[in-house]
């Protein structure tokens, strides 16, 4: 995490050693591969996700939407923002 009460002293050796820099570089390269795999997997889930979204929009107009804790409110149709061709991106 980046911000914290210890931002100044949260790391007492802010300049990485050569070994640390090499280790981090290797881990970052592997992280890119993991990220790419996640993007592919989430892309493959799109048709299923579209159904989940349709179900959610139906439920909040019938059973209700969680406003706070157990308090629910049935959302009238005119409060559902039109999709207008917007994509359903989930990983950023």
């Amino acid at each position: 995490m980046t911000l914290g009460s210890t931002t100044i002293r949260g790391n007492l050796r802010p300049k990485m050693t050569k070994d640390e820099a090499a280790w981090v570089k290797q881990e970052l390269a592997e992280q890119i591969d993991r990220y790419k795999k996640i993007v592919q997997e989430m892309e493959a889930l799109t048709p299923q996700r579209e159904k989940w979204v349709a179900d959610f929009l139906h439920r909040i107009q019938t059973r209700g939407y969680h406003v706070h804790a157990g308090n629910r409110r049935v959302i009238p149709k005119n409060e559902i923002r039109p999709r207008d061709g917007r994509p359903l991106q989930v990983v950023y």
């Binding site: 995490m1 914290g4 002293r9 949260g10 790391n11």
Partner: peptide, 18 residues
Amino acid sequence: NFGPPSFEESDANHDKAD
């Protein structure tokens, strides 16, 4: 939380320990 994993053998805190 703020840097790569590290371990420094010591039975005392660092001078500038948080």
